[in-house]
């Protein structure tokens, strides 16, 4: 399969995995193995002083590219502060901008996201912004120095699939940046559909983390994403309302 390129880095896996909601952190290690993910998202929070030894970095191989998110940020300034804290840990300069102040649907604030992207990209970050799908926002993010765009398929954690399909298609057709469909993907078939549309990658968290067997579900997503990508590369044909015979249309003995 062809490689995914973000900034100057190449990745053979097109499945980005999230690390939230795992019942048992030990599953994260096995999930990463089965998913083949080379980029994973993590969040930043205060250290749990009751159990200070329990750090998620203990479960993640050093070769993985960490994509810290700015979850918890309600505006650009907070996202910028979180990004700087993330870089200070010393695990690279990738950052997923996530600015949310809508508690019901967890929709991102595109305007504040553009603001934060501009400042952080100038400051040397590899910025991957999480957005409500909109081609104008994508163009502005490209101008602001983003390294990819991450439009949502459906609200975070909803497992509702590609509810924004028509908007995603517009973005994929027009974007000069890699398009990573993030949020809402609940089934491997949703992920395969996103890849068939021409998305460059997908990010999965809830659907894998909350499965009864997360490593096995990670394997399923990995296969679906590969299938979708290869199908896209093989140039799918348009569907039609009418039949188009696959066998010769002549009668059996009428040659």
């Amino acid at each position: 399969m062809d490689k995914l390129k973000i900034a100057n880095k190449e990745f053979s896996s097109r499945l980005l995995s999230g690390t939230g909601k795992f019942r048992d952190k030990a599953d994260i290690k096995e999930m990463l193995k089965q998913s083949g993910s080379q980029i994973i998202t993590i969040a930043l929070r205060r250290v749990n002083l009751e159990n200070p030894q329990d750090n998620i970095l203990n479960y993640i191989p050093k070769s993985t590219t960490l994509l810290p998110n700015t979850s918890g940020a309600r505006d650009a300034d907070e996202a910028i502060r979180i990004a700087h804290i993330a870089r200070e840990v010393g695990c690279g300069n990738f950052i997923k901008i996530e600015v949310i102040h809508d508690a019901k649907y967890l929709m991102p604030d595109n305007e504040e996201t553009i603001k934060a992207t501009k400042i952080l990209a100038k400051d040397g970050f590899v910025v991957l912004p999480y957005i409500t799908p909109d081609i104008i926002t994508c163009k502005k993010l490209e101008d602001a120095g983003a390294s990819a765009v991450m439009p949502l398929g459906a609200p975070i954690g909803s497992n509702a699939g590609l509810q924004t399909k028509a908007l995603l298609e517009m973005i994929i057709e027009n974007s000069n940046l890699p398009v990573i469909v993030d949020a809402g993907i609940g089934l491997p078939s949703h992920a395969a559909s996103a890849m068939e549309l021409g998305a460059d990658a997908v990010l999965i968290n809830t659907a894998i983390a909350t499965a009864d067997n997360p490593p096995l579900m990670a394997e399923a997503f990995s296969m679906a994403i590969k299938a979708g990508r290869v199908a896209y590369l093989s140039k799918l044909q348009k569907s039609s309302k009418y039949a188009n015979a696959s066998s010769p249309l002549t009668g059996f003995l009428n040659l």
Partner: peptide
């Protein structure tokens, strides 16, 4: 004192 934790 801040550190990484699970997130999407």
């Amino acid at each position: 004192i801040i550190t990484f934790m699970g997130g999407g």
